[in-house]
Design a protein around this nucleic acid. Structure first.
Lengths: 235, 235
DNA sequence: CGTAGCCTTGAAGGTGATCAATGTTTGTGG
DNA sequence: CCACAAACATTGATCACCTTCAAGGCTACG
């Protein structure tokens, strides 16, 4: 249980895309009353339905955003990795409430920024709004792309998700090169993201491991032959 | 083919939530170089992949936002009705490109606002950004809710979609009251929204018509017994 | 050492897709 | 104004894919 309240260090924040190009005193304003919180695996950052007083920026590790069905099944909405913002969109609403439950995937850290600071200092800087909207845009685009894959059978769906997650990491590397998914991802989580069962995911991915399209040694998934997965997606 | 360029009238705009609470001269600034465009059924407003120079506010009627699979199947992302903004999120990106194809559903009208006006005048008004983010938030929330329904069988999926669409219209009416879906919606469009086949949608909805849960006389769908649909959703 | 979570494999069964045929409505051009 | 085409709605039969259920193995962790 590690949730000591720490003030953020400017030098660390400077590494993040959002704070790049900003002067030190500006960054200090933007982080007014903010603090860093660390989490261990599976620890919960926000709960669905709680009223929101902060938004978060992922400094380290990754977080899983999900909702639950009445029967307790998990539905994963998004994986947030380094530099991503969480719950920024809803903070501008009158009585903001978290639309998802947010859980750490492995040891992770976030910067928590209070609603007041967001509304007074962040909103008056168009360049910041643009960056946040850019992140949202990426997220929206992922959700949309997953909708398009709904009609496809199991294998293309999984291939598409893996490529999507891997693509966020690789800086437009050449095709044919290995890609690594920057998340400790279980089969169950893949299943919960696609709305299918674990068994189905396992059956498909085991085949790929056997054919050496992917590798899944440690807890990270590596895509050895992206071309093959693309082939599968395109049918 | 009706795409005459018209200047918007302030008095009409005053009716929309976004422009309420604004002074006339402010509205004029926000509409700098903007114009109204009318469309007939199925006419295209924006094409997927085109570079974006405008965003749109729906004044009248409705628009369907969709993407297409390689095999030409349509996947509906969102239905935009009166007061909704289209393509606002992406306009702040460096080289914005439409992420969906936008098509009129019946005779409709939009106000088109150029990128430059958006970036210079809209972005400097936090209250506007808040309203736009509110609309986006609603949209995101719908997409997320649909993801949660992925694991459910056909009937709950369809019931959930109908209730979602009807809810946007009704001002928190009591349950047990009739609800009307403010869109000329075909079975095919419902199918394309859920990623299922038309036949499946028809089989489920025909049953509901027979049992008088819903009515579908004219081109609009009316929900006669919302309680019944809620029952179906909850299993 | 025992439990909990994840991974794996197999067999059976059902739900929704597919294919095909036909009816109905809408819109268009001669 | 009629004829024809195009889009939408409907119904039935068959079949494949994925879910469900069940059982067992593996690893991490207290």
């Amino acid at each position: 249980m590690n949730n000591a309240k720490n003030r953020p260090s400017i030098s660390e924040l400077k590494n993040f895309d959002i704070f790049k190009d900003l002067e030190v005193q500006n960054i200090e304003l933007l982080c007014e009353n903010s603090f860093i919180q660390a989490h261990s695996h599976k620890q919960i950052l926000f709960n669905f339905g709680e009223s929101a007083h902060y938004f978060a920026i992922v400094l380290n590790g990754a977080y899983k955003l999900s909702r639950f069905t009445p029967t307790g099944e998990e539905s994963v909405i998004h994986f947030s990795t380094i530099g991503d913002v969480i719950a920024a969109l809803i903070l501008s609403q009158p009585q903001p409430v978290f639309p998802v439950t947010v859980k750490a995937m492995g040891p992770s850290r976030v910067l928590l920024i209070p609603k007041e600071t967001y509304l007074t200092h962040w909103f008056s800087k168009p360049s910041l709004i643009i960056k946040i909207q850019g992140l949202l845009s990426t997220r929206m685009s992922r959700l949309q792309h997953q909708k398009v894959m709904l009609r496809s059978p199991m294998a293309p769906k999984i291939a598409s998700l893996l490529m999507q997650l891997a693509a966020s990491e690789s800086n437009n590397q050449n095709e044919d090169e290995e890609m690594k998914i920057p998340l400790p991802l279980t089969r169950k989580e893949i299943a919960d993201t696609l709305g299918v069962t674990v068994e189905s995911v396992i059956r498909v991915m085991s085949e790929w491991v056997k054919q050496e399209f992917i590798e899944t040694n440690d807890q990270f998934i590596k895509i050895l032959k992206p071309e093959k997965l693309i082939e599968i997606i395109e049918g």
